[in-house]
Amino acid sequence: MTGLNLLRALFVTMKNFVRAPFTVQYPDRRVGLVGAAKAEGKSPLGLIRNNPKRAIKAMAMLATVPEKVPQNKRFRGNEFTWLETRCTGCASCAKYCPLGIIEIVTHPGGIDVQEGESYGIDVFDIDIGRCMFCGLCVEACPYDALHMGATFERSTYTRAGLVIPVDELRAAPKTPSSWFRPQFEERGFNPFEEQVENHHEAGRHEQPTPEELRQRWVNQR
């Protein structure tokens, strides 16, 4: 009780004072001259010669370098990836969503890419304003057509903007998260660097036979 441990506590905080900060400065990071030069792949002198404006800015600690949050491949982000060519319109995702936020309107007789008949999709809206990103829709999808997105930057100013319409889903870059998709992990797919080019790549390895399908859909569920 003589205050020695208080001094020890001060020592611990001082140890942390000299430690490097652990903050991730998302979305961009303030850098000095060295950092700015490194981001452009030049030496500091090279930066001063090539881009004096940016060099001065960097010397005043005003230059920024974009920084990404370290994410893992299984990250359940809000930018869903949907492959229309794989989707049969079975609405399993809509059915298994605990909140019922997926709206699907189909018409019979869509394009037949997979085995069996499929529906044409008119509406496939996901209301991510109410989504809790549990990923059960992805787990429920038997044809691996719907995937969680790997990124999370789809934010808007209005609630109405939080509904992802089908056109956006069609046009969005195909960067699926490997959540509940072991096939992506097996071949080392990195959603932060590459995209799914071909809808065949997104599927599981073994194609279910019609018999298996019936087993799965009629007998078990």
């Binding site: 370290p70 994410q71 893992n72 491949k73 299984r74 990250f75 359940r76 809790m132 990103f133 549990c134 990923g135 059960l136 787990e139 969680m148 998260s177 959540w179 509940f180 072991p182 992990e185």
Partner: peptide, 28 residues
Amino acid sequence: DLFEMLCGARITNSYLRPGGVFMDAPDE
């Protein structure tokens, strides 16, 4: 961060399923 590696979420994990977990841990 480890949880994110395991199941893609940090707080609301939903990692477990009846009979075990939904997916094996990744190599990393």
